[in-house]
Amino acid sequence: MSVSKGIDPRGPRVGASITAVLLAAVVLLGASTAGLWLLTFIMLSFLLGTIRGAEGSWQGLLYKRFVRPRLSPPTEMEDRRPPRFAQGVGLFVTGVGVILGFLGVLPAVPIAAAAAFVAAALNAVVGLCLGCELYLLLRRSGLVRA
């Protein structure tokens, strides 16, 4: 197995499934203070994943510690930039919900959680890649520069 630059592509997907379950819990908690705190925790997780890459988030470390030892080695490695971009999108979406929540707009909390849930669940289950879907739209609109 080559340990060249790159990460095990299964790691971010396992991490996304953990995140999706937490986001579903926020939706269940609804427009409440408890939901706001859980979403804040998820946002901080995305912040960690954006700074350190998905493999450096706590979900990534859980995967490395508990899941990967039980699996066969990955057949191929993946670039770490796409999952990291997705972490950044998650940070933005949950961040908007958290900011609005602390400003007193509590309904924004489950709405932001629902939006992030769609992306996290699709990433976990069918391998949706946010960098593939969103990056070009952001570049075309001028919201993101190279």
Binding site: V27, L28, G30, V118, A121, L122, V126
Partner: peptide, 16 residues
């Protein structure tokens, strides 16, 4: 909230 989550999961599945 439960209804909202069920709708969300079904919608996500359809989108997937």
């Amino acid at each position: 909230q439960v209804i909202a989550l069920v709708v969300l999961v079904l919608g996500t599945a359809a989108l997937g």
